[in-house]
Design a protein around this nucleic acid. Structure first.
Lengths: 201, 201
DNA sequence: TCACATATGTAATCATCACTTACATTGTCA
DNA sequence: TGACAATGTAAGTGATGATTACATATGTGA
């Protein structure tokens, strides 16, 4: 908060781009990515509603930047989660899954944004490349676990199975379906059970 | 189209409620459930922007009506899909999964709506009951397959695993992540592989 | 047949938003 | 130092949406 006030006292903001992204992220968590407005984000950052256009071409560009940053954080978290675990261990798989679900729970708005982006972004190379990087971590861990190369179709198939499952569980959690079904899910057991099942088909 | 024109010629629309729901559904498929507006739905139905409020209290009420109708269709499709397959067979599981994914592909907008409803609906009994009905079909088929009662924790756990997976795959498909990863997924093989894995843990 | 309550629809108003244009301030570097 | 790039503001445009006050059709009962 102090940062915002201080920054406002000068004509040039200093780091408006970053603060805008932060404001938008905050708005997305509270109102959903389809309901935030640039105007409101500007207000939050303490600048005029025209200022953002010096840093971003339009609304989709802001979302794209946010998603890229989000995916990098996701990558970093995943890599950190497996860093201390032995290569080729099943624990790595489970740790990746847990990290994924944790991320969804911590930032449901951003999580939905990353995966529910509009058609405007569908063909974007930069975005799909960032996505491949994240998925690549899962593929590598799966391949190591299976004792094959990451390029092996088997590794890709199993990794996709794991991803689908964790992805689905994440959505069911943040959309409140687990509670709605009056189910209590032991998540550790669940993740462990799934990876066991998928790896030993 | 003819219906719309004909209806517009009269002062009283005739069946505005149903036509509004249909218009909203159409908009949801093209713009997403967070981006449709009552005004635009009214325009589609050929009435003023205030007319809908004579039939629905507010926006959430319209969405709820749509979701309920959607879930009923989903239930019906799932029941139809397993009707001719033997009770307790794994084919039933796979057929349910395929139906689920097909539905998501055919009506991605509605699919997202059903699962991404706002907090306003989170505690709604009618909705969670409809959800339980759909999930109940999966639980029953899983229980039959395992040879246990539907109330058995084992059945619920396995059913949830299957649901998570199919749910995740559905989202990845409609969000274009499968293409984005330059992956070609053999869906039949995938569904079969997953059910095999989950059932024989 | 005819007043009238009710259901249904409209017009008008007001707020908000994305984005633009014209201009102001600041930092920087030749 | 002085030109210029970068970054900000003020004001405005056109589109869209929610809400409200008002208008009309229609079935009903006397």
């Amino acid at each position: 908060m102090r940062v915002l006030i201080e920054a406002k006292s000068r004509y040039h903001h200093g780091d408006l781009r970053a603060q805008l992204l932060s404001a938008v992220q905050q708005l997305i968590e509270t109102k959903g990515h389809a309901n935030f407005s640039i105007s409101e984000a500007s207000r939050l950052a303490g600048v005029s509603s025209a200022a953002p256009y010096k840093h971003f071409a339009d609304k989709p560009a802001i979302l794209k930047a946010l998603v890229l940053e989000c995916m990098e954080r996701m990558s970093a978290k995943m890599l950190a989660a497996i860093a201390d675990l032995p290569v080729g261990s099943k624990e790595r798989i489970d740790a990746l899954g847990q990290t994924y679900v944790d991320f969804a729970r911590e930032e449901p708005g951003m999580f939905r944004l990353v995966f529910g982006l509009t058609e405007a972004h569908q063909g974007d190379d930069e975005l799909s490349q960032a996505g491949q990087q994240v998925f690549g971590i899962v593929i590598q861990a799966t391949a190591d676990c299976l004792g094959v190369e990451a390029s092996a179709p088997e590794a890709q198939e199993r990794a996709y199975m794991l991803w689908s499952f964790v992805h689905g569980h994440s959505f069911l959690v943040i959309d409140g379906k687990v509670e709605a079904q009056k189910m209590s899910v032991d998540e550790t057991k669940l993740l462990n059970g799934i990876s066991t099942a998928v790896l030993q088909i």
